[in-house]
């Protein structure tokens, strides 16, 4: 097996480094798609690469060799992957598969819970005004999705800011931002090298919703709503444990406010997507190439 099989594993950190930088220069819709699908594809490719590294060794197991009708000794003689590497790949693969499965189940449970809550909320249309005991404003995905806002938040905002807040949450629901976030979460558990893309994807979703709100209520109103709601939650003592993303939250808000203080992003310039597309395509080609090589090796061992 040639060096290409390692390519996805090398591209993953490169993608994690470049994609968020590129995302900041794209308009947030395309940026979010690029981050979520990109990280999912790169994660898939790196899993495939690990699997292909492990295949020749795994195929030497007597059970599998008998099933497949190939000779274990021929495989062992021609396997270009050294056993320690193959064993490492196999171990990693099993661990990652476990964590991916757990993440997938966790996401599914959270989503189902969200759907149930959305259905149970006493909402009028999309909006459910509920005193949750703290200033709150969030979107609950469901069929239909709901927007939960506490009265305190509505009191604190003026009409333009309320319009911005509602448009922001509506954008989360209508563009299914939770699925983008879930994709990035899953990709990160499959390939921890992509961990940083979770935050980047979430920020991109928020930017997307901010731009949707700005289109309805204006950029200043959206920024003001963001700041007002932020100040409101700052004035409220926090009972719940601090969320782990607290430090990131500040910079995220900073980024969002700064972006809103600038004019709306121009239409997407497609050349900026060339780099992530190239990286993802390279991953695909590398996996296809390595798969062909693994296939050839198995055929050789079958004596064909």
């Amino acid at each position: 097996m040639s060096i290409t099989v390692y390519l996805p594993l090398l591209i993953a950190p490169l993608f994690a480094l470049l994609a968020p930088r590129l995302a900041r220069r794209l308009s947030p819709g395309p940026a979010t798609w690029m981050l979520s699908t990109g990280s999912l594809l790169v994660a898939g490719a790196s899993v495939a690469a690990l699997a292909l590294l492990a295949v020749p060794l795994a195929a030497q197991l007597p059970v599998l060799a008998q099933q497949g009708g190939w000779s274990g000794s021929v495989l062992a003689a021609h396997d270009p992957v050294r056993p320690p590497i193959a064993v490492t790949a196999l171990t990693l693969l099993i661990c990652l598969a476990g964590s991916a499965l757990r993440s997938l189940l966790g996401q599914a449970v959270a989503l189902r819970r969200s759907y149930r809550v959305a259905a149970a909320l006493p909402a009028t249309g999309q909006l459910a005004v509920i005193d949750t005991g703290r200033p709150d404003a969030f979107a609950v995905p469901g069929r239909p999705g709901r927007i939960v806002v506490s009265p305190a938040v509505l009191h604190a905002l003026d009409s333009g800011q309320r319009r911005a807040l509602l448009a922001h949450e509506r954008a989360h629901l209508s563009a299914h931002h939770h699925l983008h976030a879930a994709a990035a979460e899953l990709a990160a558990t499959v390939n921890p090298l992509l961990w940083s893309l979770r935050g980047a994807t979430r920020l991109s979703c928020e930017r997307w919703a901010d731009e949707a709100a700005a289109a309805v209520a204006g950029r200043f109103e959206t920024a003001a709503a963001l700041a007002r709601a932020g100040r409101l939650s700052a004035e409220t003592p926090v009972r719940a444990p601090a969320r782990p993303s607290l430090a990131a939250a500040l910079t995220d808000v900073e980024v969002r406010l700064a972006a809103l203080s600038r004019p709306a992003p121009r239409r997407i310039s497609s050349w900026r997507l060339v780099i992530p597309l190239l990286l993802v395509a390279l991953c695909g080609l590398a996996v296809a190439n390595a798969a062909a090589e693994a296939h050839a090796l198995l055929e050789l061992a079958q004596g064909r």
């Binding site: 969200s114 404003a137 979107a139 939770h178 700052a234 406010l257």
Partner: peptide
Amino acid sequence: DHAAVLSHFLGTLNPDERSALSRL
């Protein structure tokens, strides 16, 4: 895992962060 499902309009901010907000 609810983190990925729910997107709060704004996370909870402490006073330091609030002043940063006001500055911005």
